[in-house]
Structures are given as C-alpha cells and as structure tokens.
Design a binder for these strands. Structure first.
Length: 689
DNA sequence: ATTAGGG
DNA sequence: CCCTAAT
C-alpha cells in the first residue's frame, strides 16, 4: 500500500460561525429562546439551559454572556465614552473571538481603554515577562492566565471582571496571533487588541451590555418587562434567559427539573431518552400553576433552606433515576440521604453544609435588601425584589469550540480537509462538549449547587458570570473533572456503594483522585495527560464564595491531602475500598471521522487484523484518545457496517469505497489467519503421529 | 501491556 | 465504548 504522510492540525479554539449546521439540533426543538427557570435550580440546570442555546444559537461571533445586573461602578460619562468607541470596533483578529465574557467595570474616572491597559500592565506583568527575555508569546500567555485565573484580578475589586475576560483573550492573542517581537509593539498590539475587542464586543452587544451596565434590572429593559412585570416577577424565583428577544414559551425547569429534554444538549443522546419517567415540556399555560407552587414553597419558610433542599433532592432524584435506570440496575434506597449530604455541600463538609447555606442565604438576603455598600440606583430597585424572587438574565451569543484535532493525508484535497474539519467539529458538538460556568473568573464546579448557593443569583456576583465550552474530558484525562458533571460522573454512581453496603456510614468522604502527585502551583487543578481536546484550564482552584473557599481549604487540610478541588463533589464512598469504578467516567464518544477510518483501513490493509497495537502506532500514533482497543473495536464495527445495508447504517456515512476495502482486508486477513490457525494443529498432529 | 470477544 | 479473560 502506499504510505501517505499525514498532516495534523490542531485548532486551539475553533470558532463556530453563525448558524452552523448541527445535525443533532435538528432533532430538538428550536423554538426555545428564552427560558424561565427557577432560582433554586441546580447549577447543572443552568448549564443545560445554556447548553441548549448552543445548539439553538442563531447568532454568530463570540461567546458572550451577560448577566442582567447593574454595574455599579460605571457612571454615565463612561458609558458615553464606551459608545464612542464603537467606531473602532471589529477587530480583525479572530483570536479575540475567544473572549468569553466581557464585563468591564472600572474606575469611573478612567476611560475604558486606559483602564484596560492599566489593569493589564499592573497585573499581568507583561513588562516583566518580556524583560526577562522569555518568549513573549508563551510567557505572556502563562502569566496572564495564571494571574488572572488565580485570582489576582479577582482580588482587585472592580478589575476582576476585566481580568477574567481578558484571560482568554490574552491567551489566544499570544499564542495565535503574535509572535515574539519587541515588547512594546507586542504589548501595544496586545493592548490594542484587547481594546479593540472590547469595543467590538461592546458593539455587538451594545443593547445588552450597555443596558445592563445601566440599571437593567429595571424598566429600561423591555424584554424583561415584556416577559414579566416586576411585581409578578418578584414573586417567584425564576431566572430568565432571554436570547435575542425572541418569544418563546416559558419552561419551568424547576418541576421538570431539567428533564425538559428540549433544552438539553445532547446529553448522552441515547441515554437521555430512557431517563425521566415523565419528561415534559411545559408551555406557558401549564406553567403558571407551577409558579404558584414554587412560590408557596418559598414564602412559607422564607429563608429557611428547606425548600432548597427539597428542590435539590428533587433534582437529584430525578437525575439519578434517570441515569440510573438507564445504566445500571441498582437499587437506590439511600439516595435521599446521600443527597442532602453530598448534594448541597461543595466542600465535602456535609455537616456544615446547612449552616453554610443559611449563611449564604442570609447574605443574599442582606444584599437584596440594600445591605450592600456599593448600592447604586439600581439597588434601590433591586430592593423591591425579595430574596426569593431573584431573576437572572443571561444572554449568550455563541460559543467557541475549544479545540479540534484532526489528521489528514497530505494528498487529501482542501475540500476533504474542510469536510474533515466539519466532521470533527460536528462530532464534538454532537456530544463532546460541555458547558463550564465561570463566576468571578473561577469555574463553578459544583453542579449540585443551586444558583443561589453558587452565588449566581447573588447581586454582588452577577457582574461576572461567564460560560464556556469545553470538551468533556476523556476518561484518560481525568477523574479530576468527573465530579463536576453529574450527567457524566453521575451521582448515581456514587450511590452504588451504598446500595452494596447498606451498613456503610453515611459520613461523607472526600474523593481522592489519582491525579498527579505534584501539586500544581496554582494549587488545585491539574490535568494529567490530556488529550488534544482537553481543556487545560489554569482556572478554578478556588471555590466561589470566599467564606466557602476558606472553609474548604482549611477543612481539606484537615481531612486528606487532596487538592481542595477534589472535594468538590461529595460522594458516599465506603471508607475502605473506594471502588475505582465510581470515579471513572465513561470516555466520551468520539466517532471516527472518515479520514480516521481511512487511516485505519489503510493500516489494517498493511498490517492485518490482530496487530492492533501496530495499527494504532501506524495510523493513530498522535491521537492519544485512540487506543489499540479502539482500533480493534472500530474495525469490528466497520466490518459490521460494511456487511449491512447502507440504509441500516448510522452516523456519518463511510464511503462505500472504504467499506469495500474493509471487507476485502477483512476477508484477506481472516483467511490468512485461518490458514495459520490450521497449520499448527496439523503440525501437532504430525508430531503426535 | 496486548489481544480477542462478548456486552 | 466498556469489561474481561487469556496471553
């Protein structure tokens, strides 16, 4: 066979343009543009809701999420200045499309641009980095990411928002767009890029942003008014996610608990179906009564967290049931117990979880009632919202697919390259992505928290909520990520031990991951050997709320020498034998692209079946996520596919030509193997005779 | 660690 | 893709 050299491309940040054709989305309802969800919903619900937008998005450009909230530092004069900047707009550099979230709050007296420049200079140590003689690109990227993500900015009051916005930008800017050069020019360019980007973003989102910067909670947001009069709104704790103002029926995710399948992004497409016993979509009509229901729940107990627990429990139960019933036939008697423990505490301190929650709740309460020192005109209006009536408005424009890795023959046509990329992108969108939520520049890892608990519904935190797409990390790359995504990690898995060991103490145990021993400088997160598409996020080490983080830190020390991160999700794990299976999440499904199939076929033709390790080395040496077992499995399915009628085939169609080769190779090698099989026995027979 | 095969 | 048994 001819050996073709393969080319590999790695896209760090694949920008999904407007309205990409996403096959799977076709299956789902596209009508949803706005979602009303309960304030008590799990963080995961939010993720799902957001994720839903990914498939439904019809807008281009950058991911852009804004929480409806007044930016209390911005004065009118500044707003005008921002508007003037509109003229500059539209940066040419795609890299800046990586901006995840923009929310600039700065000292009123400084123009935005200067504020940005200052902030960068002061906090990203760009000059230092360049002065050190290191490569500008790398160093800057590192420095920026670290500083920003480790909270340098976060510690800086109003600049935190800026910091984390720029984190991504800076990274991409550096790694993609600028090569080493004079520090000044780079910096200038960099600054300009940021600045321009900001303007661009501002331009794109002028309506949303500017209005939000003003006091968008109130009357100047027609969408909200249209949706629900403040008075009414204040009587339930729902969250609105208006997307571009289209009108759609509302959906309660509280009672249906994110089982409103239409909003779920391909969450284990197949698994999803069997999940909830009564998945339903509630239209606006059906919704009303439920609102009342919710309201009742809250008003009764006011700030008592009982309702929260209920809702949590509900959600979890559902979730678990869903997954559970699908995957394993285990009993789940203790779920409620594990729930109230694990579900509410993100610190692994179940005992104190309730107190903490109450604490937070009270904070929220205080904040909502104007206890907040930084209150602005907006907060006056806010105060009319009772604590249990919090609305969060989210607007998300688009997401970037973090990274794509493809491999293609160098003799392939450009057209094939395009198709291949498309396939890869589609594959990722189809199931390889998950949504990350950033709050204050830090990832919100605990999906189990309610928005309330996570601080997402808290007035003070709202100005900095961001979303991002990231590949679901493959099993290989880690258990570390598993706890944050219940739908993959699955709380129900955590229940298993309980079912098996009913006598096991309910005492929570922190999860211990087989993460690499060396503690990363930034403290917690470390992605062992990640795949091409794993997100290397320097972010996230700390928990969202300061008191919480403090508690977590100190307690984690007391418990076990594990990174604070890993305490994230609390599982009921038997003290003695933590079964590995509980932490291991199923690898994400990564359908073979046509080009991959081609490579495989080629390798097998050459090497034969039964030498899967060699095949892997030959054809997928660089694809860390493909194992020799995968080779074998894929070949198996290919052979099967080749045998069945085309109409029975699923997934992206494999060219018949390839399938023919598969059959041919399969025939050839199995025949050959058969001969080899036959001979030795003969030899044996001869020897015996 | 690999291979083979069932699920 | 996962899980196992057998190499």
């Amino acid at each position: 066979m001819v050996f073709k050299k393969r080319l590999e491309y790695s896209f760090n940040g694949y920008h999904v343009p407007a309205m990409p054709q996403i096959p799977k989305s076709a299956k789902r309802k596209r009508s949803v543009r706005r979602k009303v969800v309960d304030g008590q919903m799990c963080a995961f619900d939010l993720l799902a809701a957001v994720a839903g937008k990914i498939l439904e998005r019809e807008n281009s450009s950058t991911l852009h999420s804004i929480l409806g909230n007044s930016n209390q530092n911005v004065k009118q004069g500044q707003l005008e200045e921002e508007k003037q900047l509109d003229e500059k707009k539209l940066c040419q550099d795609e890299a800046f499309d990586q901006v995840r979230c923009k929310e600039i709050s700065s000292a009123p007296e400084l123009p935005i641009q200067r504020q940005i420049a200052h902030t960068l200079k002061e906090h990203s140590q760009i000059s230092k980095a360049t002065a050190s003689g290191s490569t500008f690109v790398v160093v800057k990227s590192d420095v920026l990411n670290q500083d920003i993500y480790t909270g340098d900015f976060a510690a800086n009051g109003s600049k935190e928002a800026l910091g984390y916005s720029l984190g991504t930008t800076a990274k991409n800017c550096c790694t993609e767009s600028y090569s080493p050069g004079s520090a000044e020019s780079c910096e200038a360019e960099f600054m300009d890029g940021i600045k321009t980007r900001f303007v661009s973003e501002q331009h794109e989102a002028e309506a949303a942003v500017v209005k939000n910067i003003q006091h968008s909670w109130s009357s100047d947001n027609p969408v909200e008014l249209d949706a629900k009069p403040p008075a009414l709104a204040s009587s339930d704790s729902s969250i609105e996610v208006p997307l571009h103002g289209h009108h759609i029926p509302r959906i309660s995710s509280f009672l249906i608990c994110r089982d409103d399948t239409e909003l779920i992004v391909d969450r284990d497409d197949d698994e999803n179906s069997s999940g909830c016993t009564h998945p339903r979509t509630i239209t606006s009509k059906a919704l009303k009564p439920q609102y009342h229901k919710i309201r009742k729940l809250f008003s009764k107990t006011d700030l008592d967290m009982k309702p929260a627990f209920h809702s949590l429990k509900f959600c979890y139960t559902r979730r678990r049931t869903q997954r559970y019933s699908f995957k394993r036939k285990k009993v789940f008697e203790h779920r409620s117990m594990s729930l109230s423990d694990g579900g509410t505490s993100s610190k692994g301190l179940c005992n104190s979880s309730e107190k903490e929650i109450n604490y937070k709740t009270n904070n929220l309460h205080a904040a909502l009632h104007g206890g907040n020192g930084t209150s602005s005109p907006a907060s006056g209006q806010m105060s009319s919202y009772k604590s249990e009536n919090f609305h969060v408005k989210l607007s998300i424009k688009s997401f970037n697919v973090p990274e794509l890795f493809i491999e293609i023959s160098e003799t392939a046509t450009v057209g094939l390259l395009k198709r291949t990329i498309m396939e890869a992108a589609t594959a990722i969108l189809g199931g390889g992505l998950r949504v990350g939520v950033l709050l204050q520049g830090k990832k919100v890892r605990d999906d189990n928290k309610t928005l309330l608990q996570a601080g997402i519904s808290n007035v003070d935190k709202l100005d900095n909520l961001g979303f991002m797409l990231e590949p679901k990390s493959a099993g290989a790359s880690s258990p570390v990520t598993s706890p944050e995504y219940p739908h993959t990690h699955c709380p129900c898995d955590a229940i298993e031990p309980l079912a098996r060991h009913p006598a096991a103490s309910p005492a929570p145990v922190t999860e211990i991951f087989n993460a690499s021993p060396e503690p990363p400088v930034t403290s917690a997160l470390h992605f062992p050997e990640s795949d091409h598409d794993s997100v290397h996020s320097p972010v996230d080490t700390k928990l969202v709320n300061k008191p919480a983080a403090a508690a977590a830190t100190s307690n984690s020390r007391a418990l076990v020498p594990v990174p604070a991160m890993s305490i994230d999700a609390v599982s009921m794990v038997p003290l003695h034998k933590p079964r590995r299976s509980e932490f291991v999440q199923r690898r994400i499904r990564r359908p073979f692209s046509v080009s991959e199939v081609e490579a495989l076929v080629e390798a097998v033709e050459k090497l034969g079946t039964g030498r899967w390790r060699d095949v892997k080395l030959q054809a997928f040496d660089n694809a860390k996520h493909r194992t020799y077992v995968d080779m074998k499995d894929k070949w198996k399915t290919l052979v099967h596919t080749a045998k069945i009628s085309p109409r029975q085939r699923r997934g992206e169609p494999v060219p018949q030509e390839l399938l023919d080769r598969v059959l041919a190779a399969h025939g050839y090698w199995s025949q050959r193997q058969a001969k080899l099989q036959v001979k030795p026995p003969l030899a044996d027979a001869c020897m015996l005779v």
